[in-house]
Amino acid sequence: MMNKLSEPIVVDWRFLFGAGVIMVLALWFSKKARTVTKTEVNLARQGEGIERFDSSVASRQLVRRAVSFSKFMRRITPHQVTEFVENRFKPIPEEERDTASFDLIRASVNLTVAALLISLGTSLKLPLSTTYVTFMVAMGTSLADRAWGRESAVYRITGVLTVISGWFITAFVAFTVSALVAFGLMYGGIYGVIGAILLVIIMFIQFARVHNKREKNAEMEEPGFVTNEHDLIVNCTNEIKSSVENTMKIYKGLLDGLFNEDRKGLMKLYKIADEFHGKSKRRRAYEVLPAIQRLNPESLDTAQYYVQVTDYFYEISISLRYMTESAFNFIDNNH
Rank of each mutant, 00 (worst) to 15 (best):
A138Q: 07
E83C: 11
L199F: 14
D262H: 14
S101F: 13
L116M: 14
K281M: 03
L116F: 15
A115D: 03
A171Y: 12
F225W: 12
S59K: 02
H277G: 02
I201K: 04
D98I: 07
F313E: 07
I201P: 07
M220C: 11
Y187S: 13
S280H: 08
L289I: 03
E86K: 09
S326E: 10
M73K: 03
L43H: 04
G47H: 11
R45D: 03
I233D: 08
T176E: 01
V177K: 00
P297E: 03
L232N: 01
V41F: 07
S55G: 15
G149F: 02
A19K: 09
G192Y: 05
A291K: 08
L198N: 04
F313Q: 06
A171V: 08
W28Q: 02
L161Y: 03
T141V: 08
I250A: 09
L255T: 02
L116P: 04
A58M: 14
F29Q: 11
R321Q: 14
Q46T: 10
N334Q: 05
L320R: 01
G278I: 03
S68G: 02
T141C: 11
N235P: 01
C236Q: 15
L198G: 06
V10D: 12
L143G: 00
T39L: 11
V67R: 13
K125T: 08
K4G: 09
N333G: 01
Y155N: 07
A115Q: 12
V154M: 02
V81D: 04
N212F: 05
K31P: 14
M2P: 02
F225E: 11
G195Q: 04
I233W: 00
T227M: 05
E86A: 15
R156Y: 02
I240K: 13
D262W: 08
R321P: 05
F15A: 01
S152M: 07
N296A: 04
V244Q: 10
Y270F: 05
L16K: 12
I22H: 05
N296W: 02
T37W: 15
E219L: 14
